[in-house]
Computed example of a mutant assay.
Amino acid sequence: MASVFGNVIHLSIFGQSHSPAIGCSLDGLPAGIELDLDALQRFLDRRAPGRSDTATMRREADAPEFVAGVTDGRTDGAPLAAIIRNADTRSGDYAGLRRVPRPGHADFPARIKYRNMHDVAGGGHFSGRLTAPLCVAGGIALQALEGCGVRVAAHIANLGPEGIPDEPLNPMEADPGQLAAIASHELPCIDADAASRMREAILSARSELDSIGGVVECAAYGMPAGVGDPMFDGIENRIARIAFGIPAVKGVDFGAGFGAAYLKGSENNDAYRMVGGAVRTETNRAGGILGGITTGAPVVWQMAVKPTPSIGHVQRSVDMDEGADTELTVRGRHDPCIVPRAVPVAEAACALALLDALLEDGRFQELYRAPERGENTTRPLP
């Protein structure tokens, strides 16, 4: 399985939804990055299941156990490895899915590819449960970027079949008011009314034994200009590659995205001006990236998240052992909407892609300064 990401940092994700543990290894991190493990746990709690009636009722602590790569609260240069133990599993709920696949899930193609030897409990290695170790690695990347003056933030930009919109993130600079609002609402939205309406829509879908999807917008503020490459290793390529590793993500765009196709060049181009002796753009329809290389404007992108495929409706399927049509009612505990829990996953994915690019360009060592967190601070990396 191609569960590895990165050019300089090499992230590997392992485990299945109901295996004894899931985890990650992260090779290539420089030594001396200071880690705030309490902040990391708060970040993981944002993604963890069982924290809200808008999410699955499966309850997991999602507390990482670091078995290598961290000494005295800092990365030590060795490959970092962490595991998260699974506790609240009910594998019996998935009996029968080996022969009757869930519509919208990977059960059928997985049976063909792995000759029916794959793990079906909880979705196995295809489960959104695997975004927990992704967030362990991404949470570390977020803290490393913080030391470089880069802040990554995401929110629910739109949700549901009726399209409940939130206020967009400021595409030109970080807005402290927006970031505070996202953190203060039960659902990660800038607008309180949008958050309330989204919550009602999710609970309505749950009561109807159905699910809904939406769009997550993510922005990285403070990325320096000149990072990335043209062609196949551009910043868009890197972010898109890891974003499409998130289960349920069906589309990714940057800046104006598909909307740019309906603009004239005079409308879509971001004009340049000199501001304080530096080159700046007046707008940011490019999403902070041109030719695969950062422009110095915020990197802004969106990912489309499909409705949860495991729903309580009776659905048409097939019995692959019998070679006959049948019906399926999915059991188990599932999110009526994945989108709220996908918000920190988008931040994690973005941070890993940008950290990898900064390391490859040699810019990380130039920029990194340990955040001021008291006496136990790291000396600047050489």
Results as ranks from 00 to 15, higher is better:
180 A>V: 03
41 Q>E: 12
139 G>T: 00
187 L>D: 01
41 Q>N: 14
39 A>K: 14
173 E>K: 08
50 G>W: 06
193 D>C: 08
262 Y>H: 15
42 R>Q: 13
95 A>T: 08
130 L>F: 03
332 G>M: 09
278 A>K: 15
82 A>S: 12
287 G>L: 07
114 Y>G: 00
311 I>Q: 06
61 A>Q: 09
377 T>C: 12
267 E>A: 13
55 A>F: 00
6 G>N: 04
9 I>A: 01
259 G>T: 11
10 H>S: 11
78 A>W: 11
111 R>Q: 09
194 A>S: 15
59 R>V: 04
9 I>R: 02
163 G>N: 05
184 S>V: 05
27 D>H: 10
372 E>F: 14
281 T>R: 15
81 A>Q: 13
18 H>W: 10
233 D>S: 08
73 G>F: 10
191 D>E: 14
19 S>N: 10
123 G>F: 03
144 A>I: 00
335 D>W: 11
26 L>V: 00
328 L>Q: 07
276 G>N: 15
291 G>Y: 06
220 A>E: 03
275 V>Q: 15
200 E>M: 05
137 A>K: 01
129 R>Q: 04
360 E>N: 11
38 D>P: 00
25 S>V: 14
299 V>N: 01
15 G>D: 05
57 M>Q: 11
262 Y>I: 04
126 F>G: 02
241 R>I: 01
304 A>L: 11
132 A>W: 02
63 A>E: 06
124 G>A: 04
148 C>H: 07
84 I>G: 02
131 T>Y: 02
54 T>L: 01
130 L>K: 01
302 Q>T: 14
21 A>K: 12
267 E>K: 12
263 L>T: 09
295 T>K: 04
112 I>T: 07
359 L>V: 15
